[in-house]
Computed example of a mutant assay.
Amino acid sequence: MRRNILITGASSGLGAEMARQFAAKGRNLALTARREDRLVELREALLAAHPGITVVTHRLDVTDHDAVFATFRTIDTELPGGLDRIVVNAGIGKGAPLGTGRFDANLQTAQTNFVAALAQAEAAMELFRARNAGHLVLVSSVAGVRGLPKAVTTYAATKAAIGSLAEGLQLELLGKPIKVSAIFPGYIHSELNEHVAKTPLIVGTEVGVRAMVAAIEAEKTRAYVPTWPWVPLARVMKFAPLPLLKRLI
C-alpha cells in the first residue's frame, strides 16, 4: 500500500478532492499549490476529520522548475519513509484558437500543462530511481485522445503529450518496481471547467474523483474515468474519421 502521497495542484478541484478521498483511506499527504491559504484550510479540515494522518503543505508554482525539484526533495524527508506515490495533477485550462493573437494564453497552457509536468515527472523519478520503488501518476484528459479544435487545441496537445510521456516511462520500466499510471478523466466538475457550458456527460467532483482514485489505487497503466461512458467514447474519438469527429464534438 502506498502510504505517503504527494498531490500537486491540490488547492481546489480534482486535486483537493483526491486529497479528501486518500485521507479517508488513512494515507499521509503532501499537498502543493500556488494558493497557500487554501492548502492550509484543506490541511486543517483533513486533520480534523482524520487525526491519525500526517498532512504537510507547500506553496509551489510548478512553472518554477527549480522549486519543483527542491520542494519534492524536501517533502520526501518530511513524511516517514519518504514518498511512494506522486500525482502530477497541476494544470490550467486556458487557450485560444491558433492565429488569433492569444499566443500568450496558449504558451502559458503549454508551459503549465506539459513543461511543468515534465519537471514534476523528472523530480519524482529522481526520488523513485534512488530507491527503485514508487508510483508516478500523470493526470492527462480524454481531451488528449485526439487533436481538438479552436480554444482547446493547445490544451488537448498538452494532454496528449502527458499520455505519451507516461507511455514512454511505462515501456522503459516494464517489469520493474517503479509503476507509472496515466489517468484520463472525462468531464468532471471542477473550478477548471466552471465556465464551460453544461454537458449531459459531466459528473460531480466526488463521483468523478472516486473513479480516479480507484484507478490510481489499482495502479492501472492507462485509465479513462469514469469508465462509463469514457472507455467506449475514447475509442470512438481515437478512431473516428475527422469529418465524423467534427460532428461528434
Rank of each mutant, 00 (worst) to 15 (best):
G204K: 03
L107G: 08
R35T: 11
G134P: 02
P226E: 11
V203Y: 07
A119N: 06
M125F: 06
D37W: 01
T8D: 02
F239K: 11
S11H: 03
G81K: 09
A123W: 01
G26Y: 03
Q170V: 12
R210E: 13
A24R: 09
R131F: 11
I92K: 11
T57G: 02
L192E: 09
M125R: 06
E126H: 12
E41A: 14
G175L: 12
E194S: 15
H58P: 00
A133R: 12
Q120Y: 03
R102V: 12
S11L: 06
A49E: 13
A124M: 03
Y187L: 15
F114V: 05
E172C: 13
Y224G: 04
R222E: 14
T8V: 06
T158R: 00
P232L: 11
I249L: 15
A214E: 14
R34E: 03
L244S: 09
R235S: 13
V62E: 01
M237P: 05
G147N: 02
A156H: 01
V88W: 02
I7A: 10
V137M: 05
S181E: 07
M212Q: 09
L242M: 13
V225T: 10
T112K: 00
A96M: 13
R20D: 05
R59E: 07
A197N: 14
Q120C: 15
T71V: 10
V115W: 12
H195M: 12
V68Q: 08
A105G: 10
T71L: 04
R35V: 01
L169H: 00
N113L: 05
G204V: 05
V203Q: 00
N113A: 04
A19F: 04
K198R: 14
L174C: 13
L165M: 14
L39H: 00
A215N: 05
S11M: 08
A123T: 00
E44G: 10
Y187C: 06
P80A: 13
H65D: 09
G144A: 03
V225R: 01
A30I: 05
L107Y: 15
D37F: 02
S164Q: 11
I53K: 03
A16C: 04
D37Q: 08
K25T: 04
V40Q: 14
R129S: 09
V142N: 02
A48P: 04
I5V: 15
P185N: 06
I216Q: 02
Y187I: 10
L60T: 00
F184A: 10
A157P: 01
P177R: 08
F22L: 05
Q111K: 14
T32W: 01
A123F: 04
A24W: 06
K150D: 15
V56A: 07
F239D: 07
I86Q: 07
L244F: 13
I86Y: 07
